[in-house]
Amino acid sequence: MEDNPTSWFMRVTVGLLFLFLLAPVLLVFPISFSGDRVLAFPPSSWSLRWYEALLGNSVMMRAFLTSLGLAAVVTVLSLIIAIPASYAIVRLKVRGSEFLFNLFTAPLLLPTIVLGLAILMIFASAGLLATFTGLVIGHLVITLPYALRVLSVSLGNLSLACEEAASSLGAKPLIVFRKVTLPMMAPGIVAATALCFLVSFDEVVITLFLTGPRMTTLPVELFHHVESQADPLVASVSVLLILMTIAVVMIVDRTMGLTKAFVK
């Protein structure tokens, strides 16, 4: 299609559509360096004042730390819960394992607005609203399906022969799991870790229902801030969030590359 007149027309169209797709994310970076008091683009002057404002904003900083801790706890718990579950479903093949897999991944099918409301109603009577425990459980509801899916695929792709070889060499089942199955699942575990962390760290809608003035996360705080005033402070927080995401993706890429070289 090189010599075709539709070719350059197509290219310009695709270029413009890509611009449309990426514009809102790209725009956040220059705005975060704005020297203006209100949101304007292009900014009339440049400064780091909104990063300073962010560091001085104790609510935002506390929310950031809460998000970080929450994502870490949720990620660790997701792995602790989903690794045995995936083993039971993929390796033990108990009756109805397919049904169980569908049931445990079903929360992803519900719109988060509905799921958030449903959880709110239960957690309100259990006194779990605006508590760290409540947030952890709420996030687990949506991170566990991702973790279970990724880990099950990873385990299902492993040949049984290595585990059989280990047991024939005298390893008891738990040792087979620890010394052979688990290390061979490493790429899946890394992927699940990153996914759970990002999902938890970025979650807004369900979290909105579960947070309160006492306990809030960065995306929720950001949401409330934009709701009341869309100033460049949001841009600096957004940059922080984007950099966080890039960092996680890069770590995964690094370790995945490493583990791939390691295993295959």
């Binding site: 022969a161 290595c162 070889a165 024939s168 089942p173 390691f262």
Partner: peptide
């Protein structure tokens, strides 16, 4: 008796070496 208690040396068609 479970495989780990049988004391048998098994060589697989796919070799099944531990990749890690």
């Amino acid at each position: 008796i479970a495989p780990h208690g049988r004391d048998m040396g098994l060589v697989f068609q796919s070799y099944a070496l531990f990749p890690h």
